[in-house]
Simulated scan of single mutants.
Amino acid sequence: MRKIVIGAAAVATLLAAWFAPDQDGGVVGPAAATTRETTPAPVATAIATPPADATSTAAATTPVPAADNVDLQIHPRVADDEMGNVFAKQSWAPETPKKIMMDQAQAQQAAQQASPPSGPPTLPFQFMGRFTDEGKTAYFLQVDGQNVVARPGEKVNDSYLLDSVSGNTMNFVYLPLNQKQTLVVGDAN
């Protein structure tokens, strides 16, 4: 029953639209464009007005500037910095500690590159442990994610020499500047 009522309403609407009389009895024609020889005016939209007499079938329109009067000059774009990045990733989530640490590391690298080094860089070593076999002690270090075994008097990498070990301190020599640096390693077991 419901479908029949909806179908009948749709048919009645279509019939009413088909047989409905025009409001003014006239037919609206296409918009006509006129040209001006003066300065370019802003583009106006064509608005149909009712005809002066009921027998006329053409509608009067407002003048629209011709295409040759339109300003088609190319203007330079504003700098992207002023516009902002529309496609940038947007998030309400707080920055993660990893992101904060990466930003700080980038800032430190930029500061190191900007200022000339006044002394040796900080030691890149992390003490992992030691092993003593037949009176000879080997020290396990981690450098840039790699494990290294070092003994006193040996080069650890191209820039450092393990000079000596006394108690819980390791003494390194930074070879490019020939300066000594100390790494505290803790108690011997």
Rank of each mutant, 00 (worst) to 15 (best):
K89S: 06
K89L: 12
K89R: 12
Q90S: 10
Q90A: 15
Q90D: 11
Q90V: 15
Q90L: 09
S91G: 05
W92H: 06
W92E: 05
W92D: 09
A93I: 02
P94M: 04
E95S: 00
E95C: 00
T96E: 00
P97V: 02
K98W: 00
K99W: 08
K99Q: 14
K99A: 03
K99H: 06
I100T: 07
I100H: 03
I100K: 02
I100M: 09
M101P: 00
M101D: 00
M101K: 07
D103P: 01
D103R: 15
D103E: 12
D103M: 04
D103T: 03
D103S: 12
Q104C: 04
Q104A: 13
A105T: 11
Q106N: 14
Q106M: 12
Q106I: 12
Q106E: 13
A107P: 01
A107C: 01
Q108Y: 12
Q108E: 09
Q109M: 09
Q109F: 11
Q109W: 09
A110M: 15
A110I: 14
A110H: 12
A110K: 12
A111P: 02
A111D: 03
A111R: 01
Q112P: 03
Q113N: 06
Q113M: 13
Q113K: 11
S115G: 05
S115R: 04
S115E: 11
P116D: 12
P117Y: 02
P117A: 14
S118K: 15
S118M: 11
S118L: 07
S118P: 06
G119V: 07
G119F: 06
G119N: 10
P120T: 04
P120Q: 08
P121I: 07
P121S: 10
P121D: 12
P121C: 13
T122M: 09
T122N: 07
T122W: 03
T122D: 08
T122P: 09
T122Y: 01
L123R: 00
L123A: 03
L123I: 10
L123Y: 03
P124Y: 02
P124C: 02
P124F: 01
F125L: 06
F125N: 05
F125R: 07
F125C: 08
Q126S: 12
Q126M: 07
Q126H: 07
Q126R: 15
Q126E: 14
Q126Y: 06
F127K: 01
F127H: 02
F127W: 06
F127G: 02
M128Q: 13
M128H: 05
G129F: 12
G129K: 11
G129V: 09
G129E: 13
R130S: 09
F131L: 15
F131T: 15
T132L: 04
T132Y: 01
T132S: 14
T132I: 14
D133T: 08
D133F: 13
E134H: 03
E134Q: 08
E134M: 05
G135L: 04
G135P: 03
T137A: 11
T137E: 08
T137W: 10
T137H: 14
A138H: 07
A138K: 02
A138Q: 07
